Amino acid sequence: MTHMANGMHEPGRSDDAGPARTSWPRYGVDAPGFVSTLGAAAAAFGLASVRWRRGRAVTAAAGALLTAGTGIYLHTTLRGKLAIWEKELDRAGLKGDEELLDLGCGRGAVLVAAAERLPDGKAVAVDLWAGKDQSGNRPEITLANAAAAGVADRVEVHTADMTALPFADDSFDVVTSALAIHNIEPPELQYQALDEAMRVLRPGGRLIVADFWFAARRYVAHLGGDSTLRPLGPGYWYGSPLLGINLVQATKKDSRRT
């Protein structure tokens, strides 16, 4: 598969599987209401700095900061997160025959990238399809993105709650989640979602979760054991490092071993 360096598929190029594509996945914008508010605030401060003499330097600086934050946010949601997930899925060293579950898949950015690496496996996803979490968040759009990427034959989507997954114990080799678990309230239910993820993993299976650093720290504390935490850098900042993303990883131990 041919990929651009930023993790987006390159239009007009063919790959080993067939001719060049004529349609491409569209993953929308994360938390569209938040970035709209951020952009509106940037515009308001910028306008105020032009109209007001008193406090002009302060309002101009605030406007510049908010404008920069809006740009960083849009880069992350449209390109940065895609590039980082491409790298992390490559780093996971998938053999190609795994069964993978993506929690809170949204429009399928992680789901599709994973499915591309599973020619003999399956990528399954669950979501409750909340539009406030991602623009145009609907299962038919996720399936359309999978079809556009040429992986519809190995993708399944389900409407399901992460805290009560409709799958048997030990069903998956990998469970992923991108910026979804923190949306569950109260935090105790976030831990329940993590427990559900570990339940459906097979022994030796891996949990890979990207979420805000303050939530990710709690996940690691809950998971314990050999779980790890790693910042994913400026490419995954939602406006500033205050909303930076960390990666949590854990492996399910085989309870039969002593």
Rank of each mutant, 00 (worst) to 15 (best):
T37E: 09
A31N: 11
D30T: 13
W24K: 01
A44C: 10
V50A: 09
D30N: 12
R26Q: 11
A48F: 07
T37Y: 04
A44Y: 12
G39W: 04
F34R: 03
S49G: 12
A43V: 14
A44T: 11
D30G: 04
F45V: 09
W24Q: 03
R53H: 10
P25L: 09
G28I: 08
W24D: 03
L38R: 00
G39M: 05
A44N: 06
R53G: 10
V50R: 08
Y27N: 02
W52T: 09
L47N: 03
G33W: 05
R53M: 09
A48S: 13
P32S: 01
S36A: 15
A44E: 11
A31G: 00
R53W: 06
R51F: 15
W52F: 15
T37F: 10
A42Q: 03
R51S: 15
A40S: 06
D30H: 14
Y27M: 02
A41D: 02
W52N: 12
A42D: 04
A41H: 02
D30F: 14
Y27D: 05
A40R: 02
G33C: 06
V29D: 03
A40M: 11
S49E: 13
R51A: 15
S36Q: 12
A42K: 00
G33K: 01
A40P: 00
G39D: 04
V35Q: 00
V35G: 01
L47S: 11
A42R: 02
A41L: 13
S36G: 03
R26E: 13
L47F: 12
V50I: 12
P32V: 09
Y27H: 10
T37D: 05
L47R: 03
A43Y: 10
F34E: 07
V29C: 06
V35H: 00
R53P: 00
V35L: 02
R51P: 01
L47I: 15
F45E: 06
A41T: 08
A40K: 01
V35P: 01
A43F: 13
P25M: 11
P25C: 08
A41N: 00
G33S: 05
W24F: 15
A31S: 09
A41C: 05
R53C: 07
T37W: 12
G28N: 02
V50C: 06
W24N: 00
S49W: 13
P25D: 07
L47Q: 08
F45Y: 13
G28Q: 04
S49L: 14
G39C: 08
T37R: 05
L47K: 03
S49F: 14
F34S: 04
Y27Q: 08
V50M: 07
A44H: 08
A43C: 12
G33A: 10
W24T: 07
L38T: 02
S36E: 11
V29F: 09
P25A: 08
